[in-house]
Simulated assay, not measured.
Amino acid sequence: MGRTSTARRWSGSSSPKPAKKLIPVIRDDDTKRVLGTCKGKDFVQLRDEAIIRLYCNTGARLSEVGNLTLADLDMSTDSAHYHAKGNKDRRVHFGPKTARALSRYLRARAKHKGADLPDLWLADCGVRRLAPNGIKIMLKRRGLAAGLTGVHAHRWRHNFAHEWKRAGGDTGDLMLLLG
């Protein structure tokens, strides 16, 4: 009888809606704290700052930044060519602070053992790329060093969308921009 009475109770009315889960964004002061862990001029600090600034400034997915090649970066137009989900490529512009961080990283990268690799992001030792999973680990480590938990690339993506909407941006334009 339990099943039929439940079915009768719900018939004619919509099913219960799950509670909306708020998507966590990363606040500007938290981003500053994470960037603060990248202070310095060694290769890893320059690379990590450039990566974090790209996420923060463009709202990209982990894989989009993680799979960038040197050819995908255009420093003359301050833009990156992202290879998005579903074969939907797009070019995204970044700001002057991100451009400076990338420029500093590229100069350090040119002196690295793996400078001849086509991948933009290089591992700190050896001649190999820094894969998206390595970036994921780095972001978590940088977050913990800043005293934060739950730091990952997608939080900057949510933050980018949140700020876009707060500034009165159009949802359709945001969808195109974020791929």
Rank of each mutant, 00 (worst) to 15 (best):
R91D: 08
T69E: 05
A50S: 07
G36C: 06
V92E: 07
K136R: 15
A167Q: 14
K165P: 00
G169W: 10
R166M: 14
V34Q: 07
A161K: 12
G114T: 13
D30A: 14
G168P: 10
C125G: 09
H154A: 13
R107H: 12
L148V: 06
D28P: 06
G169K: 12
N67V: 00
T171I: 15
A110F: 04
M75P: 00
K140P: 00
A7H: 09
G36Q: 05
R142K: 15
A71G: 09
R166W: 02
S103N: 13
L70N: 03
D30K: 03
A108V: 08
Y55Q: 01
Q45L: 12
N133E: 14
A145R: 07
H158K: 11
A101H: 08
K20E: 15
L148P: 04
K165E: 11
K88E: 07
L35M: 09
R104K: 15
I26R: 00
F43S: 03
S5I: 14
C38M: 05
L70D: 02
E64L: 08
L68H: 00
A84R: 12
Y55C: 02
A161C: 14
D42R: 10
L106W: 01
L70I: 08
S76T: 10
F160V: 02
G150C: 12
R53D: 01
G134C: 11
R107T: 14
L130H: 05
R47K: 07
H81D: 00
D173Q: 12
P132S: 05
K41V: 05
R90S: 07
D29G: 00
H154N: 12
T37M: 12
G147F: 09
D78P: 00
I135E: 06
G168F: 12
K39G: 08
L120P: 07
H81T: 01
N67S: 05
D173E: 13
T4E: 13
K140E: 10
L35V: 09
A50P: 04
A145V: 01
E49W: 00
G169H: 11
K21E: 10
R91M: 06
D116L: 09
H162D: 11
H162R: 08
N159A: 14
N133C: 08
G172I: 13
K88R: 14
L70G: 11
A167I: 04
G143L: 06
F43C: 02
R8G: 04
G59I: 03
K165Q: 14
G169L: 10
Q45V: 00
